[in-house]
Design a protein around this nucleic acid. Sequence first.
DNA 1: TTTTGAGTTGTTCGA
DNA 2: GTCGAACAACTCAAA
Length: 480
Amino acid sequence: MNAPIIYWYRQDLRTHDLPGLIAAAATGHPVIPCYILDDQAPGEWSPGGASRWWLHHSLAALGRDIAGAGGTLVLRSGNTGAELQKLIQETGAAEVYCSRHYEPWAAALEKQLHDDLDAAGVTLKRYGGNLLFEPEQISNQSGLPFKVFTPFWKHCLKMPEPAAPRPVPESITWLQGVLHSVPLDDLGLRPRQPDWAAAWTDQWQPGSQGAAKKLQSFLHNGIENYSEGRNHPALDCTTRLSPHLHYGEISPRQLWHSARQTAATRPRLDTQVAKFLSEMGWREFSHHLLHHFPELDAQPFKERFAHFPWMSNDQGLQAWQRGQTGYPLVDAGMRELWHTGYMHNRVRMIVASFLTKHLLIHWRVGAKWFWDTLLDANLANNSCGWQWVAGSGADASPYFRIFNPILQGQKFDAQGEYIRHWVPELAAMPDRYLNNPWDAPAAILDSAGVHLGSTYPLPIVDHTQARESALAAYGALKNG
DNA sequence: TTTTGAGTTGTTCGA
DNA sequence: GTCGAACAACTCAAA
């Protein structure tokens, strides 16, 4: 009798190019695909509201994919170890297969489960597949992790290429018989009253199919002008694959090989493809860093930042969160985030710079807000991104680099499409004053129907003054 | 071991 | 309007 194998799904919600599932299928043993919602295990990094919405729909999509292949996804809720043990008792499974994850809590859980299952005579087998390179594969000549992106990525590019993606196993023997499965709706992942995410399905299709569509659309359109276009929030030049990648609905190896294929057939796009791959490189870099420095979510990578004089500013924080800072591009970004669960990458940098440098609020406060509101909330990317902007991260932005939200708007949203869309009360303002309405003559404000302080806020801080304060604070850090 | 070159994404100032 | 330099010094990676 072949003992069944449990395939324990985590943030790898796909059926193709999944090494653990391929290995399980290859044994010929019956396979039980299972997802366990464990709200305790991640501690403070339990998925936020937007991410839970995505998870709901992603699990629905995975369930359909597995059903299409003849199996049934088992959903459970509760303590991961306890639920796995129950499932093992119910089915007589002798092995549990899974994909490896890199969040400190996830890695600790793997280790704990491995030991606990081992004691019960069950083997936990862990497979890669969620990164292009495993952290252990990449180190500098001293055998230490890279701390600077460029040499890190150059090194990666010299490695043997990531393996080609593999299709869904042709024949998987699914375990027959009906196992208890919690109805998806009972997991409580989806908002009900009110359903603030009702309109999100217009723009997002969680699951592998939706990911594949996004990739195809990118390879046919966005990549043409990726290097430059990716900086403009009104253009559709970015992949928008981040939430799909976070939940593992598409594999990084698939992206790598699709992009390389594009470069091979359309050599003109070589530099665009290289740029796209290097963005994948940042994802790798962040995950490797979090693996090597598990405190990255809470502690500054550069230790001297432990003494940075962060300010407490509840009013400022609230204005930032609600998109009411009086800086149109910042407000546009924060409103895009709130309404869609997403924000364009460049705008993320600008709003993050505003929070940490103009308002001097701790990057962790911003990281928490992003965590709860972003569909693609990911601990490695989020922690590294915020630390980079704040200046405390690995290979971080120098402290004197303070984004000027007015200038950034004029450069990257020159026609003001992005701002007018998200800050409609300024829609009638001419380009000249769209980013700095407070400079506009009264007649122009009047004819645009803008009354600063009532229809749209006055700036909550003065850019030049805030910049000087930030430089002073960072300068003191250097000398202190 | 010492040395050398380099480092995602910017802004401001003055010529 | 455009351009180059200054902004600071430090750490990292590799020769």
